[in-house]
C-alpha cells in the first residue's frame, strides 16, 4: 500500500481542523505515521496530542548584508526587490529585514558583489513523539511574516514511506498553499453555516487551482442549514464525514481531549475516514 500524505485545511478558521487532525493521529497510532502541525502562527495540535518533544531546531531565512566598500549605490538591488525590503537613498542602503522574503534576488543581481546573505532566525521546528506517531511542529516567531519558510522546514521532516497528517493554517493564502501543496489529499473541514460555505468555496477553488484532490468534513453538523451538503452534491465533491454538534464534544475539546479518547466508538469512524481518503485518492 502506498503511503498517504493528507493535509487538513479549511477556508474559515475555527471549523475543527485540529480536532480532525488530532483524532486521525490517535485513531491511526502507528509507527508509520507522522503528525505535522503547519499552523505555525498559532500551532495548537500539541494541546490535544501532548507529545514528548526531544529536539528543537532554529529556522532561518537569508537576508542581505551590504559591503559598503563595494557598493556603488546603483539601486539594482532595490529595483529587483519585489517587497521593498531593500532601498537605496543618497549614499545609504537600508534593509528592512521584516519585509524580506529571503529570495536572494538582490545578491544575485548586485553587479559589484557587494551583498552577502546572512541568516535571520524566524522560527523553530520541534520534533517529538505521541504514542507511536512522530510529531513535528513549526513555530513562527511573534511578529514575523515568513510562515511559508517555517512550514517548508517542517514539511522537510516528512520521511519516505510514512503516512503523514498535516494540520494546515486556515485561509487560502501563501502559508496554506505551502502546507497543502505536494500532499496527496486535502481534507477541507467546514461548518454548515453561510460563513463556512463561503470560505469552503474559496478553499475548493484553491485546491482546484493547485491540482490537489480534496474532500469535505462537516463539523458541528446540526447547526446552520443544508447548503454545504447541497454544494458538495452539486460540485460532486466527496462528503467524507459529518461530526455532530454535541455538548459532549465541546466539553472534551475544552479539556484538551480528543473525541476518540472519551468516545472510543469514534476510533472506527476516524479509521474509516482514513480508508475512505485512501479510496478517494486511488480513484
Amino acid at each position: 500500500m502506498n503511503r498517504l500524505i493528507v493535509s487538513i485545511a479549511s477556508g474559515k478558521g475555527g471549523t475543527g481542523k485540529t480536532t480532525v487532525a488530532a483524532n486521525l493521529v490517535k485513531a491511526l497510532n502507528n509507527d508509520i505515521t507522522q503528525a505535522i502541525d503547519c499552523d505555525v502562527e498559532e500551532p495548537n495540535l500539541h494541546l490535544f496530542l501532548k507529545p514528548n518533544i526531544f529536539e528543537k531546531q532554529k529556522v532561518s531565512v537569508p537576508i542581505p548584508e551590504i559591503d559598503k566598500n563595494k557598493c556603488t549605490y546603483c539601486k539594482k538591488c532595490s529595483e529587483v526587490c519585489n517587497f521593498n525590503a531593500i532601498t537605496v537613498v543618497s549614499k545609504e542602503v537600508i534593509v528592512f529585514p521584516e519585509l524580506c522574503h529571503g529570495c536572494g534576488a538582490c545578491s544575485l543581481f548586485c553587479p559589484e558583489g557587494a551583498i552577502k546573505e546572512v541568516d535571520r532566525e524566524v522560527g523553530t521546528i520541534e520534533t517529538g513523539h505521541v504514542g507511536k506517531v512522530e510529531f513535528v511542529r513549526g513555530i513562527l516567531n511573534p511578529g514575523e511574516v515568513l510562515a511559508p519558510a517555517v512550514i517548508s522546514e517542517a514539511k522537510a521532516r516528512i520521511e519516505d514511506k510514512k503516512n503523514v497528517i498535516i494540520d494546515s493554517p486556515p485561509g487560502t493564502s501563501c502559508p496554506v498553499i505551502e502546507a497543502v501543496k505536494g500532499t496527496d489529499f486535502v481534507l477541507l473541514v467546514t461548518e454548515p453555516t453561510p460563513f463556512g460555505l463561503n470560505d469552503l468555496k474559496l478553499a475548493v477553488a484553491m485546491c482546484r487551482k493547485i491540482g490537489v484532490p480534496f474532500g469535505i468534513v462537516i463539523n458541528r453538523w446540526g447547526i446552520g442549514n443544508n447548503d454545504v451538503t447541497k454544494f458538495a452534491r452539486e460540485e460532486k465533491i466527496s462528503l467524507l464525514l459529518k461530526i455532530p454538534y454535541k455538548k459532549e464534544f465541546a466539553r472534551c475539546y475544552a479539556r484538551g481531549k480528543c473525541i476518540v479518547d472519551e468516545f472510543p466508538e469514534w476510533m472506527g469512524v476516524f479509521r474509516k475516514l482514513w480508508n475512505d481518503i485512501r479510496e478517494d485518492v486511488r480513484k
Binding site: 532595490s78 521593498n84 525590503a85 532601498t87 537613498v89 528592512f96
Partner: peptide, 18 residues
Amino acid sequence: QNAFVSGGAGVGSAQFIV
C-alpha cells in the same frame, strides 16, 4: 504606484519621493 502593493508601501513611496 505603491498604493496597493502587498507590503512595503511606505518604503516604496519614500524611495519614489526621494
